Lab assay of single mutants.
Amino acid sequence: MIVFVRFNSSHGFPVEVDSDTSIFQLKEVVAKRQGVPADQLRVIFAGKELRNDWTVQNCDLDQQSIVHIVQRPWRKGQEMNATGGDDPRNAAGGCEREPQSLTRVDLSSSVLPGDSVGLAVILHTDSRKDSPPAGSPAGRSIYNSFYVYCKGPCQRVQPGKLRVQCSTCRQATLTLTQGPSCWDDVLIPNRMSGECQSPHCPGTSAEFFFKCGAHPTSDKETSVALHLIATNSRNITCITCTDVRSPVLVFQCNSRHVICLDCFHLYCVTRLNDRQFVHDPQLGYSLPCVAGCPNSLIKELHHFRILGEEQYNRYQQYGAEECVLQMGGVLCPRPGCGAGLLPEPDQRKVTCEGGNGLGCGFAFCRECKEAYHEGECSAVFEASGTTTQAYRVDERAAEQARWEAASKETIKKTTKPCPRCHVPVEKNGGCMHMKCPQPQCRLEWCWNCGCEWNRVCMGDHWFDV
């Protein structure tokens, strides 16, 4: 396979590697080409510095992935760790964990309700045991953590790749202090920090972006993250068709209702045909949960890209028209025109101005929308079919299609509260000796007794199943 190397943020060049090629071997190839010592090179990928003893497969490097290699003399205490030698983080029983690669970060837990604080980093599902597709590297999971809308060759929703760059020099040479644990960490600028490894760059702020994971991409090709779309790892039924499908869209209502993408497309087109989208002054033209839940309008309007190009163009047109109407304007009634106009409040005669090729020149009556006339309008008909009709959803289907309910059931079956801080902690095999993952707590306690870890627990039921 081919990976592209950008040395000291210059133009990239291809390097041929195998899945079992080590990072140090990659350094040696680059060092020979650039005429520099291999031990002064640092390989940066997806916000993480890659260790010498890791392989291309370990690092989730795919065909035509772009890695950054910078030349920086080692500072005291760094060289041993980078070589894969006596790194205290690798000691058996050590409590410190390697910062998780962005290629394996899962933010789907952050669609849980606000009262489930902490689960994004504490609760991990076991539903990723799908067998890898044919042709994928051994052991590589097909679980997708992110979804994007690819405006490039795909023109559809695709699995996405999370990447990070330095907000100062805009190069992907920043190593994160810690990985993101929720969508806010990724979507809110300057929320996460790190250290830029580019020479002479003092940058410390992280800037995240997404790429389409279905095809090789260049540095400049980015895609918009659709953070309401998630892999259906909890096997929730769709609120409309009641099938279990994946991926799904999880509405931001209190129940976190789930809808499959085909039904979401149908829901949007139906509402669009009836012009029953909601115009929100802050958000724009949007839709609420299909069950009509309060405070559930979709905030990231790129989710409506699921409509496809033709329907999305209609959505944008109707949204612009609705904006004009909300501002007190009118639409030209001549067939084939429909231009938005903003006449004076007491102006009865409205002319669709033909300047700049935008208007048709038609003069019409503001009251009856017919060709302009003197005197009273002959008839004014009330528009028919403008009443909002509820999208029919079966109550039982709505009850079963809740992301929140599956989460709470998982928590109930696989977790116990920490005796000190009461945060839910998952036990997935292993011994009875637990350690609270909350940095402010870190209590060592017994899963069996529910009390602080002691010699009695150690001698009596340390390794009970």
Rank of each mutant, 00 (worst) to 15 (best):
R402K: 13
V456P: 15
Q311W: 04
S223V: 09
A390G: 10
P335H: 06
R89E: 15
C253Q: 00
A379I: 12
W462G: 15
T240W: 09
F264Q: 00
D60N: 15
K299E: 08
P132W: 09
Q276N: 09
V425D: 10
Q63T: 11
H422E: 08
V248E: 01
R348Q: 08
S141D: 09
C436M: 02
K299C: 05
C418A: 01
C360M: 02
R97T: 13
T125G: 14
C377G: 02
H279N: 10
H461L: 00
L119W: 10
Q440L: 11
S223R: 04
P202C: 08
V423T: 15
D274R: 03
F362W: 07
Y312M: 05
W74T: 13
T168M: 09
C368G: 02
C421H: 00
G308M: 04
M192G: 03
K427D: 15
H303A: 03
D87Q: 12
L61I: 13
R51F: 09
V17A: 02
C238K: 01
F251Q: 03
H215Y: 00
Q347T: 09
C196K: 01
Q440Y: 15
S10K: 04
V29N: 07
V148T: 04
F277A: 00
F209M: 13
G114W: 06
Q178E: 13
L325Y: 04
Q438T: 04
C241D: 02
F209Y: 13
H433N: 06
L272S: 01
D262M: 04
C368A: 02
G359E: 09
C421Q: 00
V105H: 12
Q311K: 03
T237G: 11
W183H: 02
A406L: 09
V30R: 01
P99I: 11
I236M: 06
F463W: 02
V148G: 01
C289L: 02
D262W: 04
C95Y: 12
E367K: 13
C421V: 02
D243S: 14
D262A: 04
L187Q: 07
D394V: 05
Q282R: 09
C59I: 04
P153E: 12
F381M: 09
M192A: 05
L228P: 00
V186W: 01
A405V: 13
N232Q: 01
H461S: 00
G375V: 04
V105E: 13
D243Y: 11
D243M: 14
P202R: 11
L162H: 01
T242E: 14
R314L: 03
N454E: 02
G194K: 01
I122R: 14
C59L: 05
A379H: 08
A390Q: 14
L358G: 15
E96S: 11
E399I: 12
T387L: 12
R75K: 13
S167G: 11
G93Y: 11
P216Y: 09
C196N: 00
M458F: 12
M458G: 15
S181R: 12
C449P: 01
V330K: 04
V324M: 08
G94F: 13
G385H: 07
N454Q: 05
S246Y: 03
D185L: 00
H303C: 05
Q25K: 07
R128W: 10
L26T: 01
D20E: 11
R156M: 10
V350K: 03
L226E: 01
Y318H: 02
C377Q: 02
C337W: 02
A379G: 12
C182K: 08
C457M: 01
Q155S: 11
E382R: 13
Y143A: 08
L119Y: 13
R271Y: 06
L176W: 02
C431W: 03
E195T: 13
S296M: 00
T242V: 07
L266T: 13
S110P: 13
I66F: 04
M1I: 07
P199I: 08
S218G: 10
F45Q: 07
P202V: 09
L249T: 00
K427A: 10
N90L: 13
L102I: 12
Q34A: 08
T55F: 04
L226V: 05
L342S: 07
S110L: 07
T204S: 10
A405S: 14
G359H: 14
C421S: 01
W403V: 03
R128V: 14
C241H: 01
L297V: 08
A371Y: 10
F362P: 03
V350G: 03
Q64G: 13
C293H: 00
D460L: 15
R275P: 02
G340R: 06
G77E: 11
S286C: 02
D106M: 06
T386D: 12
H124V: 05
C436S: 00
L331K: 04
G336D: 07
S167F: 06
C253K: 01
D39R: 05
R420L: 14
S167V: 07
R191W: 04
D262T: 04
R97V: 12
M434T: 15
R191Q: 08
D185Y: 01
V290K: 04
S136P: 11
I236T: 09
A225E: 04
R104S: 14
E321P: 03
K369D: 05
C182T: 10
L301T: 13
R140M: 11
Q252V: 04
Q155G: 14
H373E: 02
T83E: 14
L443P: 02
C431Q: 06
T125S: 12
A214G: 11
G47P: 00
L174H: 03
T177F: 13
P333W: 02
C293V: 00
V393D: 03
P73W: 04
C253W: 01
V164Y: 12
H265D: 08
V269H: 03
Q276S: 09
I122V: 14
G308H: 05
I259R: 00
E409C: 09
I411T: 11
T242M: 14
V157K: 02
